[in-house]
């Protein structure tokens, strides 16, 4: 085999593999992309009940209810324009607090968001980027204060 043909065959194999990978990536994107919604997005655009999404915003003050000694929690996520009620079964992250930013992943049935995962924060000052943007959009972002 001449070097040229060898190189050509390597390139062809490489392209075939890239093609396979592209197909895999595209199908995986179709099933596994999780979109982020703010409470306002949910109110305005609506979400199908079977679609996995992430929501984010602030945990409304005084909305956190614990049942079964903390095993099941309900709280309200708000961007100060709209709010969504979230139920979650399991142990909340260490830094879950009322009046702080939160991101949850799960499904919305039209009235209640059932979270399968509530994302942990790594430190006290951290504000999920999506939440910060959502709050900026709703005009309730306190400039500089939580941007750290």
């Amino acid at each position: 085999m001449t070097p040229k043909r060898r190189r050509l065959s390597i390139v062809l194999i490489g392209l075939a593999m890239l093609g396979t990978a592209a197909a895999l990536v595209l199908t995986a994107f179709e099933d596994n992309l999780v979109f982020f919604f703010s409470p306002t997005d949910i109110a305005e655009k609506g979400v199908g009940p079977d679609r996995r999404i992430r929501i984010g915003g602030m945990v409304e003050d005084g909305s956190w209810q614990k049942y079964e000694e903390g095993l099941r929690s309900e709280f309200v996520v708000t961007d100060f324009q709209n709010a969504v009620k979230v139920v979650y079964r399991g142990s909340l992250p260490d830094l879950f607090r009322e009046g702080q930013g939160v991101v949850a992943e799960g499904k919305f049935n039209g009235t209640v968001f059932t979270a399968s995962e509530v994302l942990a924060k790594h430190d006290e000052n951290y504000m999920p980027r999506e939440v910060a943007d959502a709050l900026k959009k709703s005009g309730r972002w306190k400039e500089g204060e939580e941007a750290k």
Binding site: L24, V25, T27, F29, N32, L33, F35, F36, R54
Partner: peptide
Amino acid sequence: GDKVSVGAPFFNATFVPV
């Protein structure tokens, strides 16, 4: 401006078969 997250299921469906 759309925000999405790509999690473990994506990588399990692409990286692993590759």
